[in-house]
């Protein structure tokens, strides 16, 4: 009995070893993507791209930050042709490390200038607006402040949820710094802390907490609410945008770039152009509720149209100084 158990164990091991035989990857016509965007979100449209173009695509999925770091460490030896990132900051990091290739103007010109890198190294594919998601049972929209800074008011004590470790939140604070200065940003975070704002691990958790009534409002991206409503259509949730060009109305992007070590540049350009095609933009609009960035393409009717959101005069490329933001944030939050 004992021997046979051992035999089974070793048989499993041996058969697994057989799998170690060298993997033969197709060369040349295979496009390799590092995607910080989740497979559940972009997998279907990448499949569609393969079907429509006959190009074979391989994707490595991980967090945007981790992949950006891995790309920096890999340098010229990276197998990746394209980096598909969740936020502008990670793309900025690669741009600073001289790892990106300039995109052709026909790609850059398909989005507004505020949604691509000034030097043309990356382009936004979809837009993600910062909003306040609130619980409609506990808060009326009239009670919400006219500015993001209004949440410093003590009436919001214990009622705010936020995601202090989330990249979108950091980008938003950086925008606040660029717009109003370091002190103003730090004072705002201090006000959140004084108001006993509840920290959550990520936007989803914060929105779920709003739905459950743990907190009344959360400072998040606009589409998390729609994700939750899909699972639980009766959740008492709504999104709030600030009036005017308040600093609360930042629009960040998810975007893509081509690595300058790529030997598949034409295919890579074709891929990015495809992601900005009507087919792909419609797909993102329907399934992720993000803003399509292709000029002239309408967003989902449930969203406030992009043109109606007045964003503060902040250049997305200025959002790369995360170090200062995090240092300031750390002084306040981490006590």
């Amino acid at each position: 009995m004992r021997l046979s158990r051992f035999a089974v164990l070793f048989a499993i091991l041996a058969s697994s070893l057989a799998a170690l035989a060298p993997m033969t990857g197709a060369q040349g016509t295979t496009l390799t993507i590092y995607s910080g965007r989740n497979e559940e979100l972009v997998g279907p449209i990448i499949d569609q791209f393969e079907k429509d173009t006959g190009i074979n695509v391989e994707v490595r999925y991980d967090n945007t930050t981790t992949l950006a770091l891995a790309l920096v460490e890999e340098g010229k030896n990276t197998p990746a042709d394209i980096f598909f990132a969740q936020d502008a900051g990670a793309l900025g990091l690669l741009e600073k490390n001289n790892l990106l290739l300039e995109l052709p103007s026909y790609i850059l010109e398909s989005v507004e200038p505020r949604f691509h890198s000034q030097d043309g190294f990356w382009v936004g594919i979809t837009g993600r607006a910062r909003v306040v998601t609130y619980n409609t049972d506990n808060v009326s929209p009239e009670a919400l402040p006219e500015s993001l800074l209004g949440f410093a008011d003590p009436t919001w004590k214990g009622r705010i949820g936020f995601a202090p470790t989330n990249a979108s939140f950091h980008a938003h604070l950086t925008a606040l710094r660029v717009e109003l200065g370091d002190e103003a940003m730090q004072a705002f975070v201090q006000a959140l802390v004084d108001n006993e704002a509840v920290p959550y691990e990520g936007n989803s958790a914060a929105v779920a907490a709003v739905a459950a009534g743990e907190v009344d409002v959360a400072l998040v991206n606009h589409y998390y609410m729609f994700g939750l409503l899909k699972e639980n259509p009766d959740a008492p949730l709504a999104n709030y945008y600030f009036p005017g060009d308040d600093v609360g109305n930042l629009i960040n992007i998810a975007g893509a770039a081509i690595l300058n070590s790529s030997d598949n540049v034409p295919l890579a350009q074709q891929f990015i152009a495809y992601m900005l095609s009507r087919t792909a933009q419609q797909y993102f609009s329907d399934s992720t509720f993000e803003y399509p960035l292709l000029i002239g393409f309408e967003a989902d009717p449930r969203l406030v149209p992009l043109a109606e959101i007045q964003t503060p005069e902040v250049d997305l490329t200025d959002l790369d100084d995360l170090e200062t933001t995090l240092a300031l944030l750390d002084e306040v939050i981490n006590q």
């Binding site: 497979e39 999925y61 939750l228």
Partner: peptide, 9 residues
């Protein structure tokens, strides 16, 4: 991949 985007099912 599923939990990261709240696709719990």
């Amino acid at each position: 991949s599923a939990t990261a985007e709240s696709f719990y099912a």
